[in-house]
Design a protein around this nucleic acid. Sequence first.
DNA 1: ACAAAAGTGTTAGCCTTACACCCATGA
DNA 2: TCATGGGTGTAAGGCTAACACTTTTGT
Lengths: 245, 245
Amino acid sequence: MAKEFLIPNWETIDFEKYFLPSVAIDTVIFGVHENALKVLLMQYKYTGAFALPGGLISRDENLYDSAQRILTDRTGLPQMYLEQFFTFGDQGRSDPHFLKQILAAKGITLPKDHFLFRRSISVGYYALVDFTKVIPKPDVLSETCQWYDLIALPALIQDHTQIIAKALETLQEHLDKRLIVFNLLPEKFTMAELQTVYETVLQSKLLRTSFQRKMVNLGILEKVEKKHTGKAHKAPYLYKFLSRK
Amino acid sequence: MAKEFLIPNWETIDFEKYFLPSVAIDTVIFGVHENALKVLLMQYKYTGAFALPGGLISRDENLYDSAQRILTDRTGLPQMYLEQFFTFGDQGRSDPHFLKQILAAKGITLPKDHFLFRRSISVGYYALVDFTKVIPKPDVLSETCQWYDLIALPALIQDHTQIIAKALETLQEHLDKRLIVFNLLPEKFTMAELQTVYETVLQSKLLRTSFQRKMVNLGILEKVEKKHTGKAHKAPYLYKFLSRK
DNA sequence: ACAAAAGTGTTAGCCTTACACCCATGA
DNA sequence: TCATGGGTGTAAGGCTAACACTTTTGT
């Protein structure tokens, strides 16, 4: 339910009947491409404002499942690594300015205190995805849904810049503790690629030789075969993640 | 506002006017007493059911401030160490059974789909307090507000047992990373007392000599004076936490 | 053969584990 | 002086930083 629910008559639909009021979900979708950490953002229709993918929680849906659904809608992936990281609830954070503008441009007018305009708490989830497998898809409010480099983000609506910052912080803390990097990579990868992901996420340079040893010593990598790049140097090995140790 | 707001006419008060619907806060208040980790629980009137302190979010209040207010109401402390740890949003988690029973016993009848009976998401905060400074105070729904040993908790309503488990898990992760143990202790304490707190929180024995060195090497402790216990052994030093390094 | 990148060896330092030992205290 | 608990010394092991070195590849 609710997948492309938002398309029909805004004026007549009873949002309260299907969705929980005053709560929403915002998602930060991380992907790696060309040695850079990327985030999936939507650009709103008419206004050109940038925002994180997000959505409402169905009354008959668990919170986690809501996040999963929203992420599937935007990425096309049936499932992905997904983690709740923080809930944002400052008073000033809900600013219906852009939504009102978009609806006005569509010729839709809703009452001032409409469900969609009221203050809401937002539960933040971050997702790690294989960049190459994602097919970004805008929602009804947005013109585009595209990857943006984390170090060159456009201005975002509301508190979405802070939400991304907090997501990154959490990801950095989780990176070593849980073994989750592999969600950002294709099945097979070189040690250099793995290191680059670490470096872009942690935003710091790591020693090549120490990194190699550390990863190998974790005992979760399997050497697969050599990858001949055609370059004038030793061919690197490809590694695979051992799913269950 | 909203402090003892819940006392008067349940039937006539417009909850939606003052509080956000479908969101609540639950708090896990940790304290240490007699070498044991304790949690503050309320016991509901009439039903005898046990629950975590919690409450609603005022429309004009930041999320964090709501949690602070709820905690001040239950402990009497104007402020305390406070951290958001998770947001719980499974469908089945809201069970208005006990609330309905209590209201029925009071002779209050509210419509079946009343604000207070609907499914809600709950934002979890944990607090660390100095046990000796807390003056527990029940809310309007509860008969008592008391400390319970973490390893001998009574059965709790809804998903409150899981909420406590998640809070403890988070506290364990934060214990070494942030320097927060001191919120559970009085100003001056012996190394043995500090170690006991670590052991009860982490639920594992630690080596006395290594622990001593580790704590001292952190450089955040100040040796104050000796504490003569009257026991037949060397008097331990009292230590103080250096607030800002 | 040579440059460039991948991989291995080696040493030093730090932190933890483990346990031995000394110190202070009141019975 | 002895039992008890507090505090320090010391050695082994694991992990990381730092850097030297070897290996493999295509030009």
